[in-house]
């Protein structure tokens, strides 16, 4: 195979993957109203609630820990340099804006990629291997609606919530650093933070988190649905789900950051 064929084949495979992902996303989106409370089926909403606990509540400790560490590291690293120029107070801006716009959504998404993206893929991959997905199809039940959509609705609700928690923990870690280094009290720190960040910083972060949620659920589920073979194929799909969703999240982050940069310029 020459270089041109290899590139062409890679492009076709990439387009095929993105096409499949888009179709799956569209099917899931169309089925989403049937998961919602009151309007949808009760059992679907109950499944979505269980997913919310698995994706969101169970991930809270690790999100909190990572955010506190990242917030403290960010404050220390920037503080070291800003202190030289007598601009230590700008650490608060860096932490607040850095977390709300960027680190909060990205850190949360990467944790959920590893925790839940892999779990989605393993769960659905196992269902494929044990013919459970085929059984659903033969029962005229759409696997996307029954399996994917509750996860999607749950992720769309809890990932932005986790992002807000991540922002909060990161900013509080910054407060700890500022107290240790300059004895700035929490009330004053928070007042400075509220003055430095704008609502659009928070909204752009939350918008990103919704896109990341879409990527994580759809990539995780698609890798599961694509499983062919046995237990080893399930293992490979789990790895693939984490790797692909991680780099798609980072690509999407770069894309949206560039868009927001151009819009705000």
């Amino acid at each position: 195979m020459n270089a041109l064929e290899a590139i062409g084949s890679g492009v076709i495979q990439g387009l095929d993957y993105v096409g499949g992902l888009t179709m799956q996303f569209w099917s899931g989106l169309r089925a989403s109203p049937r998961v919602l409370p009151f309007a949808g089926r009760r059992s679907r909403w109950q499944t979505a609630m269980r997913q919310m606990a698995a994706i969101g509540v169970d991930a809270l400790p690790i999100v909190a820990l990572m955010s506190v560490c990242a917030g403290f590291i960010l404050a220390m690293q920037t503080g070291t340099y800003l202190k030289r120029y007598g601009a230590l107070q700008y650490v608060m801006d860096v932490v607040a804006i850095g977390f709300t716009r960027e680190l909060g959504p990205l850190l949360t998404a990467l944790i959920i990629c590893g925790r839940s993206g892999s779990a989605f893929s393993a769960e659905i991959g196992t269902m494929v291997v044990t013919n459970e997905i085929d059984a659903l199809r033969t029962m005229a039940i759409d696997p996307i609606e029954l399996v994917l959509t509750p996860k999607y609705v749950a992720a769309m609700i809890v990932i932005p919530c986790l992002t807000i928690m991540s922002n909060t923990f990161g900013i509080l870690a910054g407060a700890a650093f500022m107290y240790i280094s300059t004895k700035i009290r929490l009330a004053m720190y928070l007042q400075y933070i509220f003055n430095s960040i704008e609502m659009r910083d928070i909204f752009t972060g939350l918008l990103k988190s919704l896109v990341f949620a879409t990527i994580i659920v759809n990539v995780g589920c698609m890798e599961g649905f694509k499983v062919k073979g046995g237990a080893d194929a399930v293992g490979r799909s789990t790895t693939s789900a984490v790797v692909r969703s991680t780099y798609l999240v980072i690509l999407a982050d770069a894309f949206f950051t560039a868009i927001f940069y151009l819009v705000h310029k």
Binding site: R41, S43, M127, T130, N131, E132, D134, A135, M139, I141
Partner: peptide
């Protein structure tokens, strides 16, 4: 109705939930 070789029961559901799934869904 199809009964698969390996049964293909949903492992996360009880036996009665497996049986009532098509009734609830369809």
């Amino acid at each position: 109705g199809v009964a698969f070789q390996e049964s293909a029961l949903f492992n996360s559901l009880s036996v009665e939930e497996n049986v009532d799934l098509p009734l609830r869904e369809l």
